[in-house]
């Protein structure tokens, strides 16, 4: 598994250098340079949204810093949560005087570090709330939904909370819509080939050339089943069935995200979308603002995830609100 890099230990910092050079709307900040924030800074009087997570998932997390989305992002090493200093920096830099929502995926390291950062920052009188992305249905049963991990569906929470914050809403309201967006979103992934962490000498998992794994996590964590590769339509059918079984769409409207994990061509994502759209049409569910592309990746992992974001009028309005970051623009 080949990689274009200079040194495994320089991977993250060189990625962040390139990202900010290519996109001047983003700048590196924080004591270790492991926070990405908007170049324009936080607008005074706006509720801030701080996120964070491990590297290796671009555009998530840092790529969604922008207007109508998140304000700052603490970034850790590949597949590791950001450290506590970066979390504190991200919260401070997102503070425009009306409080900060900490919005990130439900992973142990991220949670511990953002929790400790919040405890330390109580002395600085920065009021914070927390919403965790928990959309991966393969990472927990219905009964323990709060233990599920956050994957691609987190971007819908970014969008809803970001739009609400731009409206001038207070922290409670921004927190409420973020939680509502998380509750309305479900994701499942399928992996075709593994990735390799730059400092590791072998891939994160092995999968035979003719096998796929349903429900695999975005770090290569084992999924629900492993079997022979099936036709795309059969794979999509199972993913849609599992998603709708987990959360029936009572609003009659959804946004769907067909997301590439890194190495799967857009062509194949559109083949998946074609079938997913057909299935949703048969179920009499209207699709609003579909997203197809690489929104949350796992480096060179091959495969895809499908997220369904069930929307009512409020979430539809927030989804349609203007947003602008390097990887997602809503005019």
């Amino acid at each position: 598994m080949k990689k274009l890099l200079n040194a495994p230990t320089a991977y993250v910092d060189e990625v962040l250098d390139g990202l900010t050079l290519a996109h001047p709307s983003l700048v590196r900040d924080g004591t270790a340079g492991r926070v990405i924030r908007r170049a324009s800074g936080i607008r005074s009087g706006k509720v801030g949204i701080a996120s964070g997570g491990g590297s290796g998932h671009l555009p998530l997390f840092t790529g969604y810093v922008g207007s109508g989305l998140i304000d700052t992002c603490a970034i850790g090493n590949v597949f590791e949560g950001p450290n506590i200093d970066s979390c504190m920096d991200a919260i401070r830099l997102a503070n425009g005087g009306r409080g900060v929502l900490r919005l990130y995926g439900n992973y142990g390291g991220d949670r511990m570090n953002f929790d400790m950062a919040g405890e330390f920052l109580e002395e600085e009188r920065i009021h914070t709330t927390t919403v965790l992305g928990t959309d991966d249905i393969a990472s927990g049963t219905q009964d323990e939904r709060q233990k599920r991990r956050g994957v691609a569906g987190l971007i819908y929470a970014y969008k809803a909370a970001g739009a609400k914050a731009e409206e001038g809403a207070d922290l409670d309201e921004v927190t409420r819509v973020a939680r509502k967006a998380v509750d309305a979103t479900r994701t499942i992934g399928v992996a075709l080939a593994p990735c390799r962490v730059p400092t590791a000498d072998r891939p994160t998992f092995s999968l035979a050339g003719d096998e796929i794994e349903m429900g695999m996590g975005i770090h290569g964590e084992p999924g629900i089943w492993r079997d022979k590769l099936k036709p795309a339509d059969a794979v999509v059918d199972e993913m849609i069935d599992r998603l709708l079984a987990d959360q029936p769409v009572t609003t009659g409207r959804i946004s769907i995200l067909v997301n590439g994990l890194g190495a799967t061509p857009l062509e194949e994502l559109f083949i998946l979308y074609r079938r997913a759209a057909e299935r949703l049409r048969q179920a009499k569910i209207e699709i609003v603002q579909p997203l197809v592309g690489n929104y949350v990746t796992s480096m060179e992992m091959a495969g895809a995830s499908i997220s369904l974001h069930a929307i009512d009028d409020e979430l539809a309005t927030l989804l349609a609100a203007p947003a602008d970051c390097p990887f997602w623009r809503v005019p």
Binding site: T9, V197, T199
Partner: peptide, 22 residues
């Protein structure tokens, strides 16, 4: 380092050894 990475790759994301080394 790589022993722990390999152990982690069976249950997690395969980077425990590299993280601990750092």
């Amino acid at each position: 380092e790589q022993v722990l990475n390999e152990a982690d790759s069976k249950l997690g994301d395969g980077d425990t050894g590299s993280m601990l080394t750092r």
